[in-house]
Amino acid sequence: MHEPLISHLEEILQKRLAPQQQAAVDAHLSGCADCRDELSAMTSFSQVVRSLRAPAVPELRAGFYARVMQKVEEQGRPSFWNLLLDPVFGRRLVYGTGAMFLLMASFLLATSGDQPELAQTPVQMISQPAVTAVSTQSGFGDDVQRDREQFLATMASFSE
């Protein structure tokens, strides 16, 4: 489309051109098929878009504002996921989880050292008699003879 039409397009579409301008546009259109076609298309689609004008808009039902506020409340109510996205709550959650993790890790580290390593072989059992499985039995150490017999019985029944 050429300049005389571009600058006056809105007036042309609304048919509000001054007579002099209209004459100039008509003169241009009579000699320019491209402008004629493009203007024809734009006029048509202008009317197509105007078809979206509501012919007679029905009234809104009473209480529209109340329904809007109800929707606002519904959408403003924090959900679980919204809470996670909330910066303050999210930061607290991260700090809390970190602190809990540190506590659990330190507890595990502190308690794992107290556990005696159980003897797996007779040699270990001899070298660590106090911490062998036998040591868990009640009365160990009270009677040396009985302990020796139990120990020998354990060794005799041991098989790899």
């Binding site: 571009i6 397009l9 809105e10 004629r36 076609d37 048509s44 689609f45 009317q47």
Partner: peptide
């Protein structure tokens, strides 16, 4: 005005791509 002109041009081109011509109008596209 320039923005409206360009918008109208895009609308016509979109119609050409869709192959749509309104029933009553002869668009000369």
């Amino acid at each position: 005005k320039v923005k409206l002109f360009r918008a109208r041009q895009k609308l016509v081109k979109a119609a050409q791509r869709l192959g749509k011509v309104p029933g009553r109008f002869e668009l000369g596209l």
